[in-house]
């Protein structure tokens, strides 16, 4: 008997079920197609302006730095100043995201910019974000040609350009948006809440375990 038959047959026997149990199938199918919302915390069910405020507060609490900017034109100066302030090299690995094409990197000639997935030596990455979830100050990063997943994890410093209108109140809102805009779920969806950390040595939290030590969010839009 195959492992599959053993397991599924075992379950049916234990539960006293039959394969042709139509009512049960209908319930399951209905739930999967309708995917009803569960109990969604009231915290995130607030007007858009408040969502941005909550997102900022929660992201900062999770050890992100958040900098509001009026427009994409301001990104190069903000990135250059941020890196200079931390004495970090001005070399960027930028996601090949069409949403970031409008950033005038040449306005800051000190910045060296290349685009593509992260390589091991890349110290700083810049990516977009599919959404921001206000409820917990979390970034939703969806993989795809414009957003290689390695950019979220290999570099020491991850800078995220998040448009204000991409902030949603709750996780459910973010998933709905993903279903509507992308249809299929991409290979990887990373929900990122603050920089990498570990408590494995004497339960004291230290930042920068395997992923980025710093997560800087540029919140763009009027």
């Amino acid at each position: 008997m195959s492992g599959r038959d053993a397991i599924l047959g075992g379950i049916r026997a234990a539960l006293g079920r039959k394969t042709d149990d139509l009512a049960r199938r209908a319930t399951v199918e209905e739930r999967l197609t309708r995917h009803p919302r569960g109990l969604v915390p009231a915290r995130g069910q607030i007007p858009p302006a408040e969502q941005v405020e909550l997102f900022t507060t929660m992201a900062r609490e999770a050890a992100c730095t958040v900098q509001p900017l009026a427009a994409l034109e301001e990104v190069p100066a903000a990135v250059a100043d941020y890196l200079a302030g931390l004495n970090l090299p001005a070399e960027l690995r930028v996601a090949p995201d069409p949403g970031l094409d409008a950033i005038p990197w040449h306005a800051r000639p000190t910045l060296t910019v290349s685009r593509g997935p992260a390589r091991d030596a890349d110290a700083v990455s810049v990516t977009g974000a599919f959404a921001g979830v206000a409820e917990t100050g979390t970034l939703m990063l969806a993989s795809g040609p414009g957003h290689p997943t390695t950019l979220n994890f290999l570099p020491d410093t991850h800078i995220v350009v998040l448009r204000r209108d991409r902030v949603t109140g709750t996780y459910e809102d973010a998933w709905d948006r993903l279903r509507a805009e992308l249809g299929d779920v991409p290979r990887t969806v990373n929900f990122v809440t603050g920089p990498s950390r570990t408590g494995d040595i004497e339960q004291t939290i230290q930042l920068g375990a395997h992923g980025p030590r710093r997560l800087h969010i540029l919140l763009v839009g009027g």
Binding site: M58, E61, A62, T136, G137, T138, V185, T188, V189, N190, F191, V192, T193, G194, P195, S196, R197, G211
Partner: peptide
């Protein structure tokens, strides 16, 4: 509130 990484 949320772990640093929740990955689907």
């Amino acid at each position: 509130e949320a772990s640093a990484y929740t990955t689907f």
